[in-house]
Design a protein around this nucleic acid. Structure first.
Lengths: 217, 217
DNA sequence: GTATTTGTGGATACAGCGTACGGCAGCGAG
DNA sequence: CTCGCTGCCGTACGCTGTATCCACAAATAC
C-alpha cells in the first residue's frame, strides 16, 4: 500500500477517535499502516504537523456546512457543525483554540464565518468585525470544550445517577456538604439535565444576537 | 528542606511558567527540589493529580477577586482575574475547560460566579442559571485560550510587523493571495491591533448583558 | 546490649515516546 | 566492471511516567 499524507492523517484520526490524543503515537500509526515508524517522516515533518493535518481534515467537514441562505443561518450552521465535529472527534476539542488554525479548510471556515458576520448590519467597520468574530469563536470554542469534558467525565464515572454519586460522590459530596458551595450544589443536585444541543443552540443564538445587536424577541 | 504538596506545586508552577506544560517533567521538578524523582510520589498520586494541584493554586488567586459590590461587578472581576491569571500562567489556558475543575478553590470560584449570576434579575430558575453560567464560562474559556494562543504565536514569530511577514508570511501570504479568503485577509492585514484587555472587556460585557437580558445602552 | 521489626529515601529498571542518524541496497556514470 | 551517489530503512538515543526493590536508619522487644 502506497503511503500518503491523507492516508496517514486518516488512520491517525481513527486512532485518536478510539484512544484519545494521549493514546496516539507515531509508532501505533505506523504499525496500523504496516510500515516502520520512520516512514511517516517522509510525509510529515513532525508530530505537530501531523496534528495540523488531522485538524484540517475535520475543518474540511465543517466547511461544508457553511451553505445557508442568510448570514445568520450560515453562522449558526458553522457553529453547529463545529460542535458536532468535536463530538465525533473528541480530540478535536483538545486542540480547539490551542493552536493557530491555518490549514486551507480552517481558513475556509474562518472566511465563511467572518464574511457572514461581516454582512450583519451591526458590523460597521473592521474593528467591529474583529470583535464579533472573536466573541463568537470564543464562545464556540469554550462551549464545545466544556461539553466534551462533561461527556468524558460522565462516561468515566458512569452516566446514571447512582454510579455518579458513588464514584465522584465521595469527594464531591463531601465538598458540597461543607455548605460552602450552596449554589454549585443546587446546580449539581437539582439541575435538570438539559438537552445539550438545545442548550448550545440557545446560548449561541443569545450571544450571536447580543453581539450583532438584534433585540431579543 | 521538608517537602509538601504546596512546595511541590509551587516549583511545578514555576517550571511550567518558564518552559510550558510540555517542558514540565517530574524529574525536573524533583531536581529543582533537590530530591529523587520518586519522592514526589509520597505526596502526589500521579502527574495528573499534580496538575490538578497546580490548577487549584491558580484558582485560589482568582477566587480572591470575587469581592465586588454588585453581582455584575463580581462576575466581571472574576472573568478579568481569570484572564489575568492565564496571562501570567499560560499553561493554565491549556487546561482551561479541558478537565473538571473540582479543587476547593475552583469550586469557590464556581460558587462565586454562579451565586452572582443567580442574583441577576433575568435568572428565574435553575435552568436559566445553568444556561447562563455555561454561556459565560464558555466565553471566558474560549477568549482566554484564543488570546494566549495569539500571544504565543506572536512571540514565536516576533512581534513586529516585518518579522511577522517574514516568518508566517511565506505560507500565510501565499494563502491569502489566492483570493479565496478575502475577509480573513482584510482582518489580518488591515485589522488594527486592538487593545487585548479592552476587547475582552467589551465582548465580556456585551455577552454578559446579552445573557442576563440587559438592554444595550 | 542485642536482635528484630518497621519504615523511609534512593536507585534501578521498564515500557513507551519522538526523532536523529548511520548503513545498506540499488542505480546511473564513466 | 567499478565507482559514487541517492534514497530507503532499522537501530539507537535521550527523554518520559512510574513500579519495584534494596539498603540503611530508627525504633521496638527481649
Amino acid at each position: 500500500m502506497q503511503l500518503s499524507r491523507d492516508k496517514i492523517a486518516a488512520t491517525a484520526i481513527g486512532l485518536a477517535d478510539a484512544h484519545g490524543l494521549d493514546g496516539l503515537s507515531l509508532r501505533k500509526i505506523a504499525k496500523d499502516l504496516g510500515v516502520g515508524p520512520m516512514r511517516l517522516y517522509d510525509y510529515v515533518i513532525n508530530k505537530s504537523e501531523l496534528l495540523d493535518l488531522m485538524v484540517d481534515v475535520v475543518y474540511a467537514r465543517i466547511a461544508e456546512a457553511g451553505q445557508g441562505s442568510g448570514w445568520r443561518d450560515r453562522v449558526l450552521a458553522i457553529a453547529h457543525a463545529t460542535r458536532e465535529a468535536a463530538l465525533d472527534h473528541e480530540w478535536f476539542s483538545d486542540v480547539l483554540g490551542g493552536r493557530p488554525h491555518l490549514g486551507p479548510h480552517a481558513l475556509a471556515v474562518g472566511e465563511a464565518t467572518a464574511s457572514a458576520l461581516d454582512a450583519s448590519p451591526a458590523v460597521r467597520n473592521i474593528d467591529d468585525l474583529q470583535r464579533v468574530v472573536g466573541a463568537l469563536n470564543a464562545f464556540v470554542i469554550g462551549a464545545v470544550r466544556r461539553e466534551v469534558t462533561e461527556r468524558r467525565t460522565a462516561r468515566s464515572t458512569g452516566t446514571d445517577e447512582a454510579a455518579f454519586q458513588a464514584r465522584l460522590g465521595p469527594y464531591l459530596r463531601r465538598m458540597l456538604n461543607t455548605g460552602r458551595y450552596p449554589t454549585v450544589a443546587r446546580l449539581v443536585i437539582d439541575g435538570a439535565h438539559l438537552d445539550a444541543r438545545e442548550t448550545f443552540h440557545h446560548n449561541l443564538t443569545t450571544i450571536l444576537d447580543g453581539i450583532t445587536g438584534r433585540r431579543p424577541t
